[in-house]
Amino acid sequence: MDIDTWVWWLIGAVGLGIPLVLTAMPEFGMLAVGAVAGAVTAALGLGIVAQVLVFVVVSVALIAVVRPIAARHRDASPGLSSGVDALKGKHAVVLERVDSNGGRIKLAGEVWSARTLDTGQSFEPGEEVDVVEIDGATAVVM
């Protein structure tokens, strides 16, 4: 029993899809799409040279076009901050006078100990401050 050429191309596409899933390298997916294009070419009755040519052209085109676009999107996506890193840059309200020795603020719905970034600066209750950093369990504000 002979297996048609297009079936071999589909087996190759599945074979290329396995490392795509295991390694999350999108290039394998692009090669798998090229193999599917080769299978379509074989199913249309074109020769092996045309099949290989279609496989190469589709695979290279996908890698050349899609990969840079995906890299741009990956690099442009903002990183999500969590924990104390997410609190940097937030606004807070002074509850108890804050100076370089300490004080209390309300930050993200919670009461935090705080101190000023500048030693000569102080903030009175009700004033808004910006959180510059978190030092242990103390918010450094300005």
Score class of each variant (00 low, 15 high):
G38I: 00
A39D: 07
A39C: 11
V40N: 06
V40K: 08
V40Q: 05
A42N: 00
A42K: 00
L46N: 10
G47W: 01
G47K: 03
G47I: 00
I48N: 12
A50F: 08
A50C: 09
Q51Y: 02
Q51V: 01
V52H: 00
V52I: 08
V52Y: 04
V52F: 04
L53M: 13
V54F: 03
V54T: 09
F55N: 03
F55W: 05
F55T: 04
F55G: 09
V56P: 03
V57I: 12
V58R: 03
V58N: 04
S59H: 00
S59N: 01
V60M: 08
V60T: 09
A61G: 10
L62M: 08
A64C: 08
A64E: 02
A64D: 01
A64R: 01
A64F: 00
V65Q: 12
V65Y: 09
V65R: 09
R67P: 00
P68F: 01
P68D: 05
P68G: 09
P68H: 06
A71L: 14
A71T: 12
R74Y: 07
R74V: 07
R74N: 11
R74F: 11
R74K: 13
A76P: 02
S77Y: 13
P78I: 12
G79P: 14
G79H: 15
S81C: 14
S82W: 13
G83S: 07
V84N: 12
V84K: 12
V84L: 13
A86V: 08
L87W: 01
L87N: 08
K88H: 14
K88E: 14
K88R: 15
K88D: 11
K88Q: 14
K88C: 14
G89T: 05
K90N: 12
H91C: 11
A92Y: 00
V93I: 11
L95T: 02
L95N: 09
E96P: 04
E96V: 10
